[in-house]
Simulated scan of single mutants.
Amino acid sequence: MRDHVEASTGLWLRRWSAGDVRAVLTAFADPLMRGQASEPVTSADAAERWLAGQSERWRDGSAFAFAVVDGRDTVLGNVAVGAVNRRHATGWVSYWTVPAARDKGVASRACRSLARWAFDDAGLFRLELGHRVNNPASCAVATAAGFAVEGLERQKLEYEGVRFDV
């Protein structure tokens, strides 16, 4: 499977690497990123563990995460297909961007490219993408990336003890 994908002019998807510790730590310092990882990413050690987890999941085929980078290899965000189910050829799309990349179409372009990669390279048949209903920016990303609304999942996600519809 390819581990570099051109997302659009000047935008690339590449596998995360051990050299991305500083970029990961900076990204997770954003208050909007709180709760987006299984453990807080507040130290270099935590960033290293986050990166190691991405690599491990790639190797075992359970998830495929890409750093979204510009032409200078500056990390702008992350797109991933997780919860990969090989029996049914399905996966769950997730994404985030750093503050400087928001409202510029970066996440939607990256998600479209990720979807093409997932179908063409990873052999998946169906991708699912869910966002909290109280997050209109994430809804706009999903819509711009071409994902269709199929319904509402009541209280699917939990963040800090609060359940959210998706």
Rank of each mutant, 00 (worst) to 15 (best):
A140V: 02
G105P: 11
G123Q: 04
F125I: 01
K156T: 11
K156F: 04
A115F: 06
L124G: 13
T97M: 12
P136K: 01
P136S: 07
N135H: 10
E150N: 02
C111M: 14
V93M: 14
R109S: 14
P99A: 13
R112H: 07
D120S: 11
T97L: 05
A110R: 02
E160R: 08
V133H: 08
L152W: 10
A101Y: 07
W96S: 13
S113Q: 12
W92E: 13
S94V: 08
R102V: 09
N134K: 01
C111W: 02
P136V: 05
C139Y: 00
V141W: 03
D121V: 13
T143L: 10
E128C: 03
V166P: 00
R126C: 12
E153P: 00
R116W: 10
N135V: 02
T97I: 05
V162M: 11
R132N: 10
V98C: 02
R112P: 08
T143F: 02
R132I: 01
A115G: 13
L124V: 08
E150W: 07
A100K: 05
A101C: 06
A118V: 06
H131E: 03
A148N: 04
W117E: 10
A145W: 05
F164I: 01
P99G: 08
R132V: 02
Y159K: 08
S138Q: 06
A122R: 11
L127M: 10
T143G: 00
F147D: 03
C139F: 00
L129D: 05
A110P: 00
E160F: 13
A110F: 05
V162I: 15
T143Q: 08
E128D: 15
E158V: 15
Y159A: 06
R109M: 09
A144V: 03
D165R: 02
A101N: 05
R126M: 12
A140W: 01
S94Q: 10
P99Q: 07
F147H: 03
S108W: 03
E153F: 03
T97F: 09
F125K: 07
D121W: 11
W92M: 11
E153L: 07
L157Y: 13
S108R: 00
F147A: 10
V133E: 13
G105R: 04
H131Q: 07
W117C: 15
L127K: 09
W96Q: 09
W96F: 14
G161K: 01
R116E: 15
A145C: 06
A148V: 13
L157F: 15
V162D: 07
V98L: 00
L157H: 11
P136Y: 06
A145N: 06
V98A: 06
R102T: 12
R116G: 15
G91V: 07
E158R: 12
N134E: 15
R132H: 13
A107I: 08
F164W: 15
